[in-house]
């Protein structure tokens, strides 16, 4: 296990290094820069700014300097927000995104999996059909449409939910559904098909032949096997959901991490763009590692450590 972890952490670092390198050079390859404006700034000002942020140095030097910063967990200052560092941006935005995202993930797990199980157990009956229609809608409706619909119906028409901001638990419901709707539906479908396959297996017949109740047969023998594909989907999804969504955060006016993703690209805010990308990538590889370790617990045939 220790050796497995060491190996994996090394390969994670290599992945991150590649992500940093590719993003860095791609970013600089795009025409324009942080100080390009529609109405160009005077050349003297640009020169001064570039000197301040060391953009006048050769690219390889900038790259090496940046790497040095990353190693010491210093992601540099934002080019667009004066006096704010990227570390601060992430530290401020991530908890907000993670709060909504965490709720979303709970929603996905606690609603998506049971719905999939019910659907499989009631295959082709009305319960299954209702769940599958909803799940198909959930997969096909984009989050911005869902978010808009939630605001229109529950905030504007019914007045049940607040439409923006994040000051109470009620504020979380709308964004949670809009953010998790797709994954919830996907997990329900995935659980259903996986469950249907598992229920056909011989070992389920064995479990029934032992005189176990249907609850134990389904909840113990079938579910653990059926969750294997779900776990592999959930890992990267957690990373994606926790780090926030630009669209949902924009619509519900939530000051999360998601908006920095998109704004930094438009603004050529190099350090923010790099920082957020690295943060997301690091989170993603970490989640994948956790999924792989979880696999070993769920399915003993997969040996963690070899």
């Amino acid at each position: 296990m220790g050796r497995f972890l060491a190996n994996r952490i090394i390969s994670m670092l290599i992945t991150l290094f590649l992500v940093i390198t590719i993003t860095f050079f791609l970013m600089h390859a795009i025409p324009g820069g942080p100080f390009t404006r529609e109405k160009p700034l005077p050349p003297k000002v640009i020169e001064a700014l570039e000197a301040k942020y060391k953009l006048d140095q050769p690219l390889w030097k900038q790259y090496v300097d940046y790497l040095k910063g990353v190693v010491t967990f210093d992601l540099g200052p934002s080019f667009q927000r004066v006096g704010v560092t990227v570390n601060e941006l992430i530290a401020k935005g991530f908890p907000v995104s993670a709060k909504i995202g965490g709720g979303s993930i709970l929603l996905v797990l606690l609603v998506g999996i049971p719905l999939g199980v019910i659907s499989a157990l009631k295959q082709n009956k009305w319960q299954d059909q209702v769940v599958m229609v909803l799940a198909t809608l959930g997969v096909t409706i984009p989050s911005f449409v869902m978010a808009t619909l939630i605001i229109y119906i529950f905030s504007s028409k019914l007045g049940w939910l607040p439409s923006h901001g994040l000051t109470s638990w009620k504020h979380m419901i709308g964004p949670m559904i809009a953010l998790g709707g797709f994954s919830l539906s996907f997990v329900a479908r995935l659980t259903r098909s996986s469950m249907l396959e598992v229920l056909q297996q011989d070992y389920i017949r064995t479990a029934r032949a032992k005189g176990l109740s249907e609850f134990v047969v389904v909840g113990k023998h079938a579910l653990k096997n059926a969750l294997i594909p779900v776990v592999s989907y959930i890992g990267p999804t957690i990373a994606a959901i926790l780090t926030g969504s630009f669209v949902v955060e924009k619509i519900f006016a939530i000051p999360g991490l998601g908006k920095h993703f998109v704004e930094s690209v438009g603004n050529r805010d190099y350090t923010v763009l790099m920082g957020v990308t690295i943060f997301y990538a690091a989170f993603l590889v970490l989640m994948i590692l956790i999924v792989d370790i979880l696999y070993g617990f769920i399915d003993p045939r997969i040996k963690v450590g070899d």
Binding site: A207, R208, K210, G211, P300
Partner: peptide, 22 residues
């Protein structure tokens, strides 16, 4: 359920798939 596995038990054709792998 109280009879199955208790008074009447069964074994099946394919032992490779009749036991739960997890």
């Amino acid at each position: 359920m109280s009879i199955r596995g208790n008074e009447i038990a069964m074994i099946f054709q394919d032992p490779m798939t009749s036991l739960n792998p997890v």
